[in-house]
Simulated assay, not measured.
Amino acid sequence: MDDTIEDHITQSLNNLLENDLKKFKTKLCEECEIKFPRRKVLKFDSTGLRDCMISCYGETRAAEKTIQILEAINQKDIAETLKENIQREIYKKINLNLNKMDDTIEDHITQSLNNLLENDLKKFKTKLCEECEIKFPRRKVLKFDSTVLTDCMISCYGETRAAEKTIQILEAINQKDIAETLKENIQREIYKKINLNLNKMDDTIEDHITQSLNNLLENDLKKFKTKLCEECEIKFPRRKVLKFDSTVLTDCMISCYGETRAAEKTIQILEAINQKDIAETLKENIQREAALPGTMRVTVSTSETSLETITGIETGTVSTPGTGIDTGTVFTPETDIETGTVSTPETGIETGTVSMPETGIETGTVSTPETGRH
């Protein structure tokens, strides 16, 4: 179980008869770019030949070249065995990476590209150039190795979008196992970020909305924008909304609805486009913000006193316009906790206290400026 790709190549070459090994060397010199003279290559034994190919191509590419030449000289059984061994080694590496919790999305993309054989990596680059908007010339992209290709995509799309593009192209070139592994890794990284955010107590509702939108893949974010334009009253043109990134989209919704309503709309649309996990996480974040001290805001003027919560709890307004006497009490419907009482006696003196009954914490006092009485 501790064989390496290098060991498997050597074993495959050892399994060739002398004449077949000679055919292999000849084919290698004819069809591949080898930095060793032909006369030297023809004298190599299996180990020397393996080292020669690895020094020219690296382990994975050397394995692919070996498979191609074995098939070309009609050693298909040995080629098939080598292919199976290489795939097993690659997936062992993938499984090892699954257990590494400090990898970034960038690392996972690079690892996925590294797991492609040379011909498949070429297909990937070609598909990327054909179907995606890349700000690098095609001739340059085709020369990129896995690391530079990852950097290229991230510079064009950002980490999450680059991961989505990678998954889409891997599926398109029939590398579904690698695509599925990458998808699992990305989802794990996203939920790691979500869990980290759950522990951050200084985030605002605006932050939580933006984070939820950032956790959407490109296609899902597009669905979100479309649903928002179709079902909600937005004061921005649809064509502009569809171009907004997560931060601007959050600002757009808050400017139209205010923080609490914007959060509610976000949750509704996330559920509608089948992003229930992200919706549930946002809901938990908003509820947690509601439970934090100091989330109630009281605004006071000489003509109007309003109680506003940023938590989605119903709000109430109590005013004394002119000489009229209005009284009011605001309750939270689910808990019946009294969150504010404002009264105006016949004397015209305004008095009021807003408190959290269970804790006894006074969060606001309304007084009459003329008398100074509370």
Rank of each mutant, 00 (worst) to 15 (best):
E334F: 13
S255W: 08
E284R: 11
D7G: 02
V366T: 10
D151H: 14
T323M: 12
R139W: 12
L82I: 01
G322I: 15
L98V: 07
G328I: 11
E230Y: 02
T339S: 09
N85A: 09
T320D: 14
E338S: 11
S212P: 03
Q75R: 14
A262R: 00
E84H: 14
K83Q: 12
K76E: 12
I94K: 05
K93H: 08
L198R: 09
N215D: 15
K200W: 02
D20N: 13
K240I: 15
D45F: 02
E159N: 01
F44R: 02
I73K: 05
C252K: 10
T309P: 10
I361M: 15
I90Y: 07
D45V: 08
D245K: 08
I209K: 03
A163K: 00
I254D: 04
D145A: 14
C52T: 06
T260P: 09
S255V: 13
I273F: 01
L216V: 07
I54T: 10
R88H: 11
F144P: 05
M1W: 12
R238A: 12
A179M: 06
Q268R: 07
L128A: 07
I178Q: 02
T26P: 02
E171D: 13
I105N: 03
T353C: 08
L16T: 01
T339R: 06
I178D: 03
E370G: 13
S255E: 10
H208Y: 10
I209D: 03
I310T: 15
Q268E: 12
D102W: 10
N274I: 02
A262L: 04
V148P: 04
L117N: 08
I325V: 14
I154P: 03
K193A: 10
I67R: 03
I105T: 06
D336E: 12
L13G: 00
F244I: 11
G312E: 10
V248K: 12
S303R: 11
D151P: 00
I273C: 03
N85F: 07
T347C: 11
F44Q: 00
E131P: 05
Q68Y: 11
E30P: 05
L16W: 04
C256M: 11
A79D: 10
Q187K: 10
E308F: 14
Q187I: 06
V248N: 04
D277F: 05
A79Y: 07
L42Y: 04
T204A: 00
